[in-house]
C-alpha cells in the first residue's frame, strides 16, 4: 500500500511526468492531419499508422523518469533493502504509470479514432487493443530505461524499440481485420498472451538490472 501512496504523491506533485506525455499524444494526433491535405479521403487509412507510432513515442516519453529520480535520490536503494519484494515494487510502479498515462491515452486514442473514421464500432474495438498495447509498451520501455538508467533514455529506446517492431506488425494486422469486420479476437488473445508473459518477466528482469546498478 505504501508504495502506491508513494508513487501517487510523487506524481501528483510532478504533473509533467504524466500530464506531459498525454498532452504530447494529443498534439501529435492534432498535428498529423495538418501535414496531409485536408480534403484527403484516405485520412483514416494513415490514422492508425500515426496512432500506433504516437502511442509508442508517448510511452517512451512516459517511462523516461520512472526509475531515474528514485535512483538518484536513493529511494530505490531503500526499496531494494526493504522487506517488500523488489519485483513487486517495480510492477506496482509500472502499473501506476500505466494507470495514469496508458489508460487516458487509450481513451483519447479511441475518441480520436471516432473522430477520424466516424465509426463507433471501430472506436470501441480499438479501445481494448490500445489498453493492452500501452501496457506492453510501458513494460518494455521500462526495461530499456532500467538498462540505460544513468545513460539517458535515448540508449534505452534504441535497444528496446527493435523488440517492439514485431508487435507493430501484429497491430497493423488487427486494424485490418477490424476494418474488414473479420474476427479480431485472435489478435486480442495474442496481445493478452504477450502481456501476461511480460507482466511477470519484466519486473523480475528490471529488479535484477537495478540491483546491478545499485552495486
Amino acid at each position: 500500500m505504501n508504495i502506491i501512496k508513494f508513487e501517487l504523491l510523487k506524481l501528483r506533485n510532478k504533473s509533467r511526468g504524466w500530464l506531459g506525455p498525454i498532452l504530447v499524444f494529443i498534439l501529435i494526433m492534432v498535428a498529423f492531419p495538418l501535414t496531409v491535405e485536408i480534403s484527403n479521403k484516405d485520412l483514416d487509412q494513415s490514422f492508425f499508422a500515426v496512432l500506433w507510432i504516437a502511442v509508442l513515442l508517448v510511452m517512451m516519453l512516459a517511462t523516461e523518469d520512472i526509475f531515474l529520480e528514485d535512483f538518484n535520490d536513493g529511494s530505490l536503494e531503500q526499496f531494494a533493502i526493504s522487506d517488500i519484494s523488489f519485483p513487486y515494487i517495480i510492477s506496482v510502479k509500472i502499473f501506476i504509470y500505466w494507470l495514469l498515462i496508458g489508460v487516458p491515452i487509450s481513451i483519447i486514442g479511441s475518441l480520436f479514432c471516432l473522430g477520424f473514421t466516424n465509426s463507433g464500432n471501430l472506436a470501441i474495438n480499438i479501445f481494448p487493443i490500445l489498453l493492452i498495447t500501452s501496457y506492453i509498451f510501458i513494460n518494455v520501455f521500462s526495461f530499456g530505461n532500467a538498462l540505460s538508467l544513468t545513460k539517458g533514455s535515448v540508449l534505452g529506446t534504441l535497444v528496446t524499440l527493435p523488440l517492439l517492431l514485431p508487435l507493430l506488425i501484429v497491430l497493423g494486422k488487427a486494424v485490418i481485420s477490424i476494418n474488414l469486420n473479420l474476427n479480431y479476437l485472435g489478435f486480442v488473445a495474442l496481445l493478452l498472451g504477450v502481456l501476461s508473459i511480460i507482466i511477470f518477466l519484466i519486473p523480475l528482469i528490471i529488479s535484477y538490472i537495478i540491483r546491478a546498478h545499485l552495486e
Binding site: K151, L158, V159, P162
Partner: peptide, 16 residues
C-alpha cells in the same frame, strides 16, 4: 531489425 539490434547491443556495452 536484427541489424539495428546488433548495433544497439554494441552501443549499450560501450556506454558503460
Amino acid at each position: 531489425i536484427l541489424f539495428i539490434m546488433y548495433l544497439g547491443l554494441i552501443s549499450l556495452h560501450d556506454s558503460f
